[in-house]
Design a protein around this nucleic acid. Structure first.
Lengths: 150, 150
DNA sequence: CTTATTTAAGACTTATTTGTCTGAAAATAC
DNA sequence: GTATTTTCAGACAAATAAGTCTTAAATAAG
């Protein structure tokens, strides 16, 4: 698994919020049910994104979370860093400390290239931009299939 | 971490064996000490590669493990599949079952490309070929730095 | 103020990965 | 046959990730 479960859940929930018109607050309950993610676990993960400034939250009967303006203009790369840290993009494929241009492992050059592709995959678009493209392409966000991006 | 710890240890040990001249048996004790990997854990991992036919083992005072002929001609991709399974190369970046050409997630196309790069990185050379290149480039196999590929 | 609903936060539990230990089996040397 | 060394294999333990539960704090409505 490329990204941790936590991270995948955080990305999916953020994409869910981006898919909604008007940037209103959506309850964690709604998100967890729609995306079939455990409520409490999702709560903890989204608290992290809130702490990092990508989400805004509001307590109370009409409360919930929504993307902050930072969040709307964030890339999935930003969220991955916030949840999983930078390891995927900095560490040697063979886990060898010190591996780099000087004294590389056998995989170094190709791993730098491959992880560049991963980085680009995550950086190329902001959440807002993905949401725009999602309106037309109906990108899936669940196991079920096509999702309705409003 | 792209690959599991087990997998990384299995790759490093196999590369260590490939680095040695003559394809002789090397004790697990030697390998674990040279590569600074826990002896017992490495034993378990290499038993897996032996069961899959990539290594041959021999008990007794002059025993140890060596690459089988299959193993010499195997790629790191083969070993990754044997230890970690195919998940990295088959699963959706967002962990969504059913994601594919039909009804893709937002990352699908770029993930297919990126994981193709990873696959190629692991498939492009056999262990023997890496060993040949290692003789000249002294690829690192430990945290310390350059390694002596015989 | 009370009740209800939400997020926040910490404690706790379960599952999985990583790692350690013990005993058994196979091989060599004396 | 015994002692030693090795791999084999299962049991066990520790660490980490994933997930569940409980309590507290904030907000709205009556």
């Amino acid at each position: 698994m490329l990204l941790s479960k936590s991270c995948v859940y955080g990305l999916r929930a953020s994409l869910y919020l981006a898919s909604k018109r008007g940037n209103e607050f959506h309850s964690l309950k709604e998100i967890s049910e729609e995306l079939e993610i455990s409520f409490h676990f999702l709560t903890k993960i989204l608290q992290q994104l809130t702490a990092e400034g990508y989400l805004e939250s509001y307590k109370g009967p009409n409360g919930g979370v929504r993307l902050s303006s930072n969040g709307q203009n964030a890339t999935l790369f930003d969220l991955v860093i916030a949840i999983d840290g930078p390891g995927l993009f900095t560490q040697c494929a063979l886990g060898l400390p010190g591996c780099g241009l000087q004294e590389p492992c056998p995989l170094h050059d190709h791993w730098v290239e491959a992880r560049g592709k991963i980085e680009n995959m995550l950086k190329r678009m902001t959440l807002n931009e993905i949401a725009e493209e999602g309106k037309e392409k109906h990108f899936r966000l669940t196991a079920e299939g096509e999702f309705s991006w409003q």
